[in-house]
Design a protein around this nucleic acid. Structure first.
Lengths: 208, 208
DNA sequence: AATTATGTGGAGGCAGCCTCCGGATCAGGA
DNA sequence: TCCTGATCCGGAGGCTGCCTCCACATAATT
């Protein structure tokens, strides 16, 4: 198990993973305005044209110079991340509400939400999931957020005996990430594939 | 406009899908020699440095001019495909031998072989699977080969009642492809994730 | 209003993609 | 063997996108 030990920090004591993820926003008014403009332009550009969109195009779209874009996001990755992080935060917040459902239902719903969501942001997900477990600074904490959000749901399901207990949230997310990255498949089909994978995770009480 | 659309005549009037996968080889001696050189260089370059390798580098490596490379492979895709096709053919041929095993074992073994194999060729697979179901001329027939090889194994397993029968080979391959594309995971971990997914496909005779 | 810290934007250097065509090379006939 | 047309080679060059750098502009502060 080379990569970061997944089973480690699922429940990490991260206090406000939800807010502190986004890299420090600039302070001056114009800087902040441009920062937001770039993110907005990037989000729509990535969503529409995939992650291949040129950064120069995004800058143009945002009405700023290419230099400004690079000032805020020194790397293509950084920009991808900034956009991605926002989206993930939103997703994580949904986990809280799912706690009301039955263990399995909650877990499955979260997984489905993840895929569903990713389906629309495939461009981002596809590019970013490639860097999971790599030297991704900000992305690591983002992943931690996902863990923190999904981990409890998984553990609850495992405690209830409806999910095999030899998996951790990192693996589940990787599995889902892999399915998410299937391109050329209808959203409905992806959901079906997910349900198959979930079925592999499930453990029927009277089973075995 | 992400990718250019020179997807014109790469295909040519392909006769047989099984053998004619590789695009028509050139006729003149020197041309054919260079064609083979480029493919060889591309294979090792892609395997070593991932699919990001520059075409110019491949041309240099092959000892030919960049123009020559483009003459034979008008598109980056075309080159990727040419290399990929050869590999897939080899994989497909292995399916025949698996027919001796039990239905489930044969099916699972094939799936594992697929992942195993892809793991080494991740660079290729990752890039190419993105184009599944897209306007990929030659690649389509290549996929057909995969279907032809894996389909019977799946059907046999379904007939024996050990695999749920509401899936087809295309979905299975997509599922596996998705898992294959999980990066940052150890081969062993990927195999575990596959086994989970396979478990979702499996149908125990006394189950349900 | 003046000063200073901070931010802007695009020119420019670099690399990779791809096209184009003058010249080299091959194949077949005299 | 030599000639000749068909075929193929290869790299210069145009283009786009990545990223850096810095003279200039603007917000914040005094």
């Amino acid at each position: 198990m080379s990569t970061t030990e997944p089973t480690r920090q699922q429940t990490a004591p991260t206090e406000q993973p939800a807010r502190g993820l986004t890299s420090a926003r600039p302070k001056r008014a114009d800087a902040r305005r441009n920062y937001d403009r770039v993110i907005a332009a990037a989000r729509s550009a990535f969503t529409e044209s995939g992650a291949e969109t040129s950064l120069e195009g995004i800058a143009r779209r945002a009405g700023v110079g290419i230099g400004t874009l690079y000032r805020h996001f020194p790397t293509r990755q950084a920009l991808l991340e900034a956009v991605y992080v926002e989206e993930v935060e939103r997703l994580c917040n949904s986990a809280a509400e799912l706690a009301r459902l039955e263990p399995w239902e909650a877990f499955a719903a979260w997984a489905e939400g993840l895929v569903d969501y990713m389906a629309t942001k495939l461009a981002l997900a596809s590019e970013l999931f490639d860097y999971v477990d790599r030297d991704a600074p900000v992305f690591t904490s983002c992943r931690a957020s996902l863990f923190a959000a999904g981990g409890p749901l998984l553990q609850r399901a495992q405690a209830a005996g409806v999910v095999r207990d030899d998996v951790d949230i990192a693996e589940v997310i990787q599995l889902i990430g892999g399915i998410t990255k299937i391109q050329g498949a209808e959203p409905a089909q992806i959901r079906r594939l997910l349900s198959i994978a979930l079925d592999g995770l499930r453990r029927h009480p009277r089973d075995d």
